[in-house]
Design a protein around this nucleic acid. Structure first.
Lengths: 193, 193
DNA sequence: TAGCGTCGGTGACGCTCCATAACGAACGTG
DNA sequence: CACGTTCGTTATGGAGCGTCACCGACGCTA
């Protein structure tokens, strides 16, 4: 079963509708942030009335949860692709992460930004997070010791996000600093532990 | 005029009211995040009706802006106090920052969390940010080269926030990692550049 | 192909919130 | 004690989320 291959017209319409909704949602998030995401506005721009969206998503939280999942998936795929492209230097993975984040900062913050106190990620999302972590652990140059590789991956990850979150939030802008150079300097620091 | 020294009863009442409002606001932020901050809820908990708050703050944004300023001020004062206490090791300043952040994570995210796309900090807030930066630059051990001190402060700051933002957002929790140990490891990395 | 059940969309409604306006009461200064 | 400033209230408007009842259209199946 789970005939994902064959799809009825209704299923295709429904899938198309869901992607259209998410597309509008991403547009709003990119321009005004996730907290300003409005179902009514999405519906209006799709030419239909508000409650219609509830046929596709249980509510605002449900939609955002799926968007978070998509963001994670996008990052994991981007990292995996970079890692599989042969010269998967750890520093190059860092640059890949930065490019991905700069392409849509609010998408980055949807994952690594301010958490909502009550919120807990569903299991499939934490799974993707581990997937990303595994890519970092396996990155070249390959280390003989697994523990060392894990430690390196973790240090790498925290430093990347330290530089990235400050850059994307604009904390460097007012100080006349060059975020790109700073990022490269942090990548260099990982070369010789 | 502007007799700031003497304060009329009205002025004191007004100041007291503003602090009460902010106190309730912090409570809400700590438990539900800044995005869930509700003026109506604050007014209700203060035993008065919603529009009364507009005598003290021009609106929701005005209140939040002042809260951000207070958060910055609190962090800067905490850092300055630690730096002035004699043994102002750079690593100790890092631990001070972490303690400050753990005391109220949402207050931390009010400064270093997801930015609102349109928002620009007022000048007096960026001033406090520079104040914090200056404390880090001047931290012990004193470096002869100013550029080196600035570089060290910057690296320190990005790494501290990398570890802190991931810890506070709960990204380490699901992976069975010890945030405190990880933080100490990052502080160690700063010792020998 | 005809009919029927499922699915999708609509307007109406209740609730909460932000923000403004108009009104009345309390306060304290002169 | 009188008057103007300040404070708090209710009323109002507008937007958003989410639910409900209703209806139209689609497509599967007999």
């Amino acid at each position: 079963m789970a005939d994902a291959a064959t799809s009825s017209p209704r299923e295709r319409y429904r899938a198309r509708m869901r992607t259209d909704i998410k597309e509008q949602a991403w547009e709003q998030i990119a321009t005004a942030g996730a907290s300003a995401l409005s179902l009514n506005a999405i519906a209006k721009r799709l030419g239909m009335s508000g409650p219609a969206l509830y046929r596709y998503y249980a509510g605002r939280d449900d939609l955002i949860t799926e968007l978070i999942g998509d963001a994670y998936r996008s990052l994991a795929d981007t990292m995996a692709e970079a890692a599989a492209s042969g010269e998967a230097d750890l520093a190059e993975l860092g640059r890949t992460t930065r490019r991905w984040a700069l392409a849509d900062p609010q998408r980055y913050f949807l994952i690594y930004g301010t958490p909502v106190p009550g919120y807990h990620s569903p299991a499939d999302i934490t799974e993707i997070a581990n997937e990303i972590y595994a890519i970092l652990v396996a990155a070249r140059p390959t280390l003989p010791d697994t523990a060392a590789a894990q430690g390196r991956a973790l240090t790498f990850w925290t430093r990347v996000h330290g530089a990235l979150s400050l850059e994307l939030a604009g904390h460097f802008a007012g100080m006349g600093l060059d975020p790109a150079a700073l990022f490269e300097a942090e990548l260099d620091s990982l070369r010789a532990p």
